[in-house]
């Protein structure tokens, strides 16, 4: 499987796009996609953590003993997550308030740990960085799409800007937790439909 660097990147955008294809990392996906802004913020945080942790895991892949590799991955991931958390608090505080507990929870996001275990531990540094970036961008696209769908119908806004007239009654169900499941299911089925044609 000698994929080119471009292929490593592109696979994260459709073939292995999380959380739709790799059905991983569903918890933050369902919880933070109340708006486009939240989805984008979460996505960027995940991109940063994924790229950094993939890079470091790949750099150290010959040093880390395989018996304690998961512990090492978690230490590396947790470090970068706390870095993101501190930076968010210092520079984008309103976003940090909205995402709340889901930033620290990136530590246990299966997408990040999954890429470290399944990819970065076995591949070269450059490939791992590209893979992390691709999967991260894919994750961001998913969150933004889901966030856009839920925000437009649930609050009648897009990025905080009203899109419907004043007479629009927001469909509050969409920004509650059950709406998240329904939207995710609909998007998954649409993707399968597109694939099976």
């Amino acid at each position: 499987m000698a994929k080119s660097i471009t292929q490593e990147f592109v696979k994260g955008l459709w073939d292995e796009i999380p959380p739709f294809r790799l059905v991983l990392g569903l918890c933050p996906t369902l919880a933070v996609t109340k708006s486009v802004e939240n989805g984008l913020g979460m996505g960027v945080a995940v991109i940063f953590v994924l790229v950094c942790s993939n890079m470091l895991v790949s750099l150290l892949r010959n040093i880390i003993p395989s018996k304690v590799r998961i512990a090492c991955f978690i230490v590396i991931i947790a470090t970068f997550v706390i870095v993101v958390e501190l930076l968010m608090q210092a520079y984008t505080y309103p976003l940090f308030l909205k995402l709340g507990i889901f930033i620290p929870l990136i530590v246990v996001n299966c997408v990040v740990l999954g890429r470290a275990e399944a990819f970065a531990y076995k591949n070269s540094v450059v490939r791992s960085i590209v893979d992390g970036f691709g999967i991260g961008v894919g994750f961001t696209i998913s969150l933004v799409a889901l966030g856009a769908l839920r925000e437009v119908f649930g609050s009648g806004t897009f990025f905080g800007i009203p899109v419907f007239g004043a007479s629009f009654q927001p469909f509050t169900f969409m920004i509650e937790a059950p709406g998240a499941f329904v939207c995710l299911g609909l998007m998954l089925s649409l993707m399968n439909l597109a694939e099976n044609k």
Partner: peptide
């Protein structure tokens, strides 16, 4: 390995 990794991470944070 774990000790070095952890102390490096602690220092950075």
């Amino acid at each position: 390995v774990l000790t070095v990794l952890s102390s490096f991470s602690g220092g950075l944070l």
